[in-house]
Design a protein around this nucleic acid. Sequence first.
RNA 1: GGACAGAUGGCCGAGUGGUCGAAGGCACCUGACUCGAAAUCAGGCAUACCGGCAACGGUAUCGUAGGUUCGAAUCCUACUCUGUCCGCCA
Length: 426
Amino acid sequence: MLDQREVAKNFEAVVARLQDRKGSLDLTEVKTLFAERKVLHVEVEGLQAKRNAANEEMKKLAKSDPKALESARGELKAVSSGIKEKEARLTELEEKLEKLMLVIPNVPHASVPTGASEADNQVVRTWGEKPNLLFTPRQHFEVGEKLGMLDFERAAKVSGSRFAFLKGPLARLERALASFMIDQHVQRGYEELLPPYLVTRQSMTGTGQLPKFEEDAFKTAGEHELFLIPTAEVPVTNFHHDEILEGATLPRKYCAFSPCFRAEAGSAGKDTRGLIRMHQFHKVELVQFVRPEESQAALEALTADAARILELLGLHHRVTLLCTADMGFASTKTYDLEVWLPGQQAYREISSCSSFGDFQARRAKIRFRPAQGEKPQLLHTLNGSGLAVGRTLVAILENYQREDGTVAIPEVLRPYLGGLDALRPV
RNA sequence: GGACAGAUGGCCGAGUGGUCGAAGGCACCUGACUCGAAAUCAGGCAUACCGGCAACGGUAUCGUAGGUUCGAAUCCUACUCUGUCCGCCA
């Protein structure tokens, strides 16, 4: 959520920058409501002050003059009900304003390129090179099925489309990847959290998934409404909901492994084959809580922490800076990590690292005290995938495949697989 | 699922319908004392919004939402959450 006062103060500039995003919205109503609210607010406060003063008199009359008390009581009753009416209108206005504010996206950082589509994203750097395969590389699902370790048909029977069973060594590889990533991040100063996979509406609103993107989420049936997390970002960011952190304890860095659940509404027909786009997948997430002045540097560092996993796995990839049109709702700036998939002959997103400014902190009420005795203020949040485990598995299957259908296991993962050096057909 | 208990400031914890933005304590800040520190003493110390250069003044906030009342932290109702015990279960 944006700061209402900032929006009111720099209205033109904010509107202009929001126009650069896709599907920008009209903010004139916000401006009008803000002005109206201010007038009404002053009015209500004045009336309340009068009532409070009158009540002081009542206190005295109660002792000295019971008769005058009775007549004054009638008058004050009218005053009180008048105030209540105005208060109700004010509440209504505020709710309307709040509702509008909740669906306004974050303002892109000045360093974010303006663009009209993902074609305007900028490649910032590239690591490694495309593997030199002396045969026509297969796509990961062909590799997996040939190995007899990937079963979409049975998954469809059990759960429908966009689910998969992994079998044997491939299932173990998925677990190994997650453990490897977590171990690496813990070594780099991230604290591991194992979060709840079901969260409240409030938590989903705190990080920005709601109210605007409810159709993307799975939620529980029945009167006990809970949402399946689309990413560990939601529980981990809300870990500090409504808290004031001591400045000396910043930055706080967490990593978390979790399954992620996504309805994938509106992506019908996209990536229908394979493991790229699933209703359920595993991800290791990095989340940071930092001082505002440190968030830009923290984004660079967090992105590097995520990219480092790809480097250790020897996977060729590039880092792109998303343009204004391609950024997520809550983000001020986002780097995507795109891994090379020889089977697809394409770079595919495997991590998305964002800085949110105080946008999430304002929604989730996360503050810090800069120094003892100083006033609490909103901190900045960041997060990024480190990495999407399923897509990493895809990248390994495609990049490490051999002509005979076996798949080499990257050195760094072998200790997690009992020394296994390759996947071989069963 | 059943039975109780509770929800107050950064933390702990008092609170009779008006004298309560809220005692007291802890933590923290300033000053005094001290060579310095500890201890002690004095003062300060919630958040948000509005007005003001400022001092300061006003308004709201005691889990959430309603209600009663001239007036609610205090009374009533519902809800949420937490704790304890019992049952059930991985």
